[in-house]
Computed example of a mutant assay.
Amino acid sequence: MAALASLALTYAVFFPAARLRIELRGAEPTAATFHDGACFVGGCAVTYPFAGEQVTAGLPVGTRAGGHAEGDTVYVRSAPGEPERVVLAADTGRGTVAALLAVPGGATLLGLLAGAVRMRRDRRSEPPAQAA
Rank of each mutant, 00 (worst) to 15 (best):
L110E: 08
A38M: 13
G115E: 14
P83H: 07
F50A: 12
G105T: 14
G111S: 11
P60V: 02
T33N: 07
E82G: 03
H35E: 03
D122T: 11
A65S: 05
V13W: 09
F40V: 10
C39K: 01
P127W: 09
G71N: 08
A3S: 13
A3N: 14
A38Q: 14
L24R: 03
A90R: 09
F50D: 14
V87G: 00
V97T: 05
L9D: 15
H35L: 05
L20M: 09
T108V: 09
L100M: 07
F15N: 10
G66N: 10
C44R: 00
V86Y: 01
V13L: 15
D91R: 00
D122L: 15
V74H: 04
G105Y: 08
A2E: 15
E82P: 02
F14E: 02
A17W: 02
V97S: 02
A102E: 09
L20F: 01
L110Y: 11
G26E: 15
R124D: 10
A27M: 09
R94G: 09
C44S: 04
L59Y: 05
M1Y: 15
G52T: 03
M1T: 13
P128V: 09
T10V: 08
R94D: 10
T92L: 04
V103I: 12
F15Y: 14
T108E: 07
A132P: 14
G95N: 06
A129N: 11
E84L: 11
A3R: 15
A57S: 10
V13P: 00
S6H: 13
A27Q: 12
A32W: 00
G111D: 11
E53T: 09
P128M: 08
G111Q: 13
G52D: 04
A27K: 04
T108W: 12
T33F: 07
R21L: 03
A12F: 11
A18D: 00
A114I: 08
P104Y: 11
R25Q: 05
A2G: 13
L59D: 06
R123D: 12
R118A: 13
T92V: 10
R25P: 00
G105E: 12
S125A: 15
Q54D: 14
G71D: 05
A3T: 09
T73P: 02
E23S: 07
A18G: 01
A79F: 06
A2V: 14
P83W: 07
R118I: 13
V41Y: 13
P83R: 08
A51H: 13
R21A: 03
A131S: 14
R25L: 03
A2M: 15
A51I: 07
M1V: 12
G66E: 12
